[in-house]
Design a binder for these strands. Sequence first.
DNA 1: CCCCAGGTCGTCA
DNA 2: TGACGACATGGG
Length: 279
Amino acid sequence: MKIFANKMDLKSTLLSGQCFRITEEENGSFTCILSDRVINVKQDDDYLEITSNKQDNLLEVVINYFDLETDYNEYINYLSEKDNYLKEISNKCSDYKILRQDKFEMFISYIISQNNNVKRISNSIEKLSKMAGEKIIWNNKEYYLFPTPENLMKLSIEDIRSTGVGFRDKYIISALEKIKEDNLFLDKIYSLNTEDALKELISIKGIGLKVASCILLFGYYRLDVFPIDTWVIKNISLNYPEISPIQKEIEKFARNKFGKYSGLAIQYMFHYERNKKSE
DNA sequence: CCCCAGGTCGTCA
DNA sequence: TGACGACATGGG
């Protein structure tokens, strides 16, 4: 299947660290494990070539996942008005998308992400999926979907520990406990404003402000939260030396300066700062 | 062997 | 409140 997507930078979007279940293939395409299927995507100029093990609603699923129907010009224009630096990076990142990923997967994945690196995070998620997720065979290869809450709950803490998540095992358990006692917990988040949603998430042991923000940004598409991590702190102190480089100050700064799209601004910075390093 | 990784918790002042 | 070490684990 071929989809017109002229404002899409597939590679930087997928390798930006917002999703963990991505493989770059030798032909330059990417294999992505979504919540209900496996897809392979290849960028061909203004088009995305898609194959999948599952054809049901494939077009709709892909458009949604890559956020292709959103006009990013509104975001770019909004941020460009804030200052010159934002103008520069938001224009450079204009084809970089925020993926619409599964909230439960983000809930667990970003708990694993704390004080961890992307490679190890991906590894643990892969092992968890292998242990409790639905198996898919496609093109003679095995893939495993991210587990459902019910199936993840069946694992013991030792099982979870064996995926390499280390001390985060008990945090995953406490997150699952929360869903066990209120199976609509993750759905209820939709109806809350950002401040209350953050509070709810942070009430779970093992979820702090950063992880809660990532869950809201990547699992709920809340663009007004700002996950502040080591990369962002580096970036802010470099480009806004007058701001003291502590989380609380940066948060205040981001809220005031970047407003309703501050999450996007921070994500651009994260992306930009990391890419500079890898060049 | 030390440092770091898309942090958070518990403790001590 | 605020600072600070501990926490699992693998790679540089």
